[in-house]
Simulated assay, not measured.
Amino acid sequence: MAEHGNDSRLAVLVDCDNTSPDILEYALQVVAQFGRVVMRRGYGNHSTLANKWQEALVRMAFSPCLQYQYASGKNTSDIALALDAQEALFDDRADTFCLVTSDSDFAYLCRKLRERGATVLIVGEAKTPDALQNASDQFFMWQPAEVISAPTPEDVATTEPKGAPPQPAKKRRPRALMDAVALLSGNTTDGKVGLGALGQYMKRTNPSFAPKVYGHSTLSDMVRSYPDLLLTQGQGNGFWVSLKPAT
């Protein structure tokens, strides 16, 4: 897998037929941490690109890639996106790919890109199937802004008093983190695994993993919430995680 960093060359390829223009700004914010965007393309049919996507693609400096449907039910846009991604990889224009889609049909493309050493990111909605999420190196979930509507009597009855502090997200401790520490620390001489290495492993096994999903602000806070895990600070301000010894 290619190492991402400020020198990575990113291709952001958007399946416009499958998602909303509102996702575009979020996708660019996400990929900014991985390197320089060298390709911005949006793929769709005439009705998609000429209507809801036109303003967003122009404003965000994306190249529209119009694909006519030669037969009903055939999505030529998906094929064009996949071919452009492979071409950009082979001629070394990009080494990191961000696919903006929730369509599981792209899972095979993700696997092929990664086989060739590319890093693959997916920005999609909550409906994105596990098959696509797990085919990527990292999955970022976009959630549309809630539609504001007039409150119903039931809403009014259950609404918190004005000025009340927001309720914190419920903190959870997934078993997968415990299993990861046991596995990774078991292969070391001191029974410890670096906090950064633990986070990378969790992302590799579950691309949608993030401490905030489980109600924790950081991975270190999440580790501290486990009664059977121990977080220690080593030399150079590095943090290490281990299983607490049995008493």
Rank of each mutant, 00 (worst) to 15 (best):
Met1Ser: 15
Met1Ile: 10
Ala2Asn: 11
His4Ser: 10
Gly5Met: 03
Asn6Trp: 15
Asn6Ser: 14
Asn6Gln: 15
Asp7His: 00
Arg9Thr: 02
Ala11Gly: 07
Cys16Asn: 11
Asn18Ala: 01
Ser20Pro: 04
Pro21Trp: 02
Leu24Asn: 00
Val30Tyr: 06
Gln33Met: 02
Phe34Leu: 12
Val37Cys: 07
Val37Leu: 11
Arg41Trp: 08
Ser47Ile: 08
Thr48Met: 08
Leu49His: 00
Trp53Ile: 00
Gln54Tyr: 05
Glu55Ser: 12
Ala56Pro: 09
Arg59Phe: 05
Arg59Val: 02
Met60Gln: 15
Ala61Ile: 15
Leu66Asn: 07
Gln67Leu: 05
Tyr68Thr: 07
Gln69Ala: 13
Tyr70Leu: 08
Ala71Ile: 07
Ala71Leu: 06
Ser72Arg: 12
Lys74Arg: 13
Leu81Pro: 00
Leu83Ile: 13
Gln86Ser: 12
Glu87Met: 08
Ala94Thr: 03
Thr96Ala: 04
Thr96Val: 14
Val100Gln: 00
Ser102Gln: 01
Asp103His: 00
Ala107Lys: 06
Tyr108Lys: 15
Arg111Asn: 06
Arg111Glu: 15
Lys112Pro: 02
Leu113Gln: 00
Val120Met: 01
Gly124Met: 08
Ala126Leu: 08
Lys127Cys: 07
Thr128His: 03
Asp130Gly: 06
Asp130Cys: 04
Gln133Asp: 09
Gln133Arg: 14
Ala135Phe: 04
Ala135His: 03
Asp137Phe: 00
Gln138Ala: 06
Trp142Tyr: 11
Val147Lys: 15
Ile148Lys: 13
Ile148Trp: 09
Ser149Met: 10
Thr152Gly: 03
Pro153Leu: 04
Glu154Thr: 03
Ala157Arg: 12
Thr158Lys: 15
Thr159Arg: 09
Lys171Glu: 14
Met178Pro: 04
Asp179Cys: 11
Val181Leu: 05
Leu183Val: 09
Ser185Thr: 06
Gly186Cys: 06
Gly186Asn: 02
Asp190Arg: 10
Leu195Pro: 02
Gly196Cys: 01
Gly196Arg: 05
Ala197Met: 11
Thr205His: 03
Thr205Ala: 13
Thr205Gln: 04
Phe209Lys: 01
Ala210Val: 13
Ala210Asn: 14
Gly215Cys: 03
Ser217Gln: 15
Thr218Lys: 14
Thr218Gly: 08
Leu219Gly: 09
Ser220Met: 09
Met222His: 12
Ser225His: 11
Asn237Thr: 07
Phe239Asn: 06
Trp240Pro: 07
Val241Lys: 02
Leu243Ser: 01
Lys244Phe: 08
Pro245Gln: 13
